[in-house]
């Protein structure tokens, strides 16, 4: 590499550059050997949309849990053995419930805040400038692009995770699911439903 080569425009493949920085930091004692691999394993074993689905299903079958979840989500999810403490420090979780005339959708316009410790990495579209710029301004149009057409009478609230809390939507229980048990109900819940870009 020439001395005039600007590091910020490095043309080496990024995988090689990442490996190089990792090795340099290990060499200098800023990373313990194997520390990055341990963190990768921890990431993989951490949050998952299945956690959100389990929370939603419990809220659908247990009105008491639903009330506790909406009042203090961090404590309530402890009843399912879940926690918001998987990251650097425990973050506050705020759960917002859809209703017959009310729909919620979550975004982080400034970066990409998301309850990763609970739900795992966010989808790529959630991090895109297109979603972040548009959903606060024209949520109906954005939701329509996701195939979610809401009646004109439905009030839409967009939650911008612009500071410290993390947000999750509690979707409405679909009609005709009275016979399903908690596990089968959880299987209906999607990651998009937990963000608010799908009905469930």
């Amino acid at each position: 590499m020439s001395a005039t080569h600007d590091a910020t425009h490095d043309e080496a493949p990024i995988a090689a550059r990442v490996r190089h920085v990792e090795a340099l930091l290990e060499q200098r004692g800023w990373l313990a050997p194997g520390e990055v691999d341990e963190r990768i394993d921890a990431l993989a074993a951490g949050g998952s949309p299945a956690n959100g689905a389990a929370i939603v299903a419990r809220a659908w079958v247990d009105p008491g849990f639903r009330a506790r979840l909406l009042a203090d989500a961090n404590t309530a999810i402890g009843e399912l053995g879940l926690s918001m403490a998987g990251g650097l420090q425990e973050q506050q979780l705020i759960v917002v419930a859809n209703g017959p005339d009310e729909h919620h959708v979550v975004v982080c316009t400034l970066c990409s805040c998301y309850p990763i410790a609970l739900l795992g990495p966010s989808p790529g579209w959630y991090k895109s400038e297109a979603y972040r710029s548009r959903v606060v301004r024209e949520p109906r149009a954005v939701l329509r692009e996701f195939g979610l057409e809401l009646p004109a009478s439905t009030r839409i609230t967009v939650w911008d995770a612009s500071a410290e809390s993390r947000y999750m939507v509690l979707p409405r229980r679909p009609a005709g699911t009275d016979d399903l048990d908690e596990g089968r109900l959880a299987a209906l819940v999607t990651r998009k439903g937990l963000i608010g870009t799908a009905a469930v």
Partner: peptide, 13 residues
């Protein structure tokens, strides 16, 4: 970027 116009349709993978 919140509220900016001109970004394209959202692409889902």
């Amino acid at each position: 970027v919140g509220g900016m116009v001109g970004f394209p349709a959202i692409v889902e993978e």
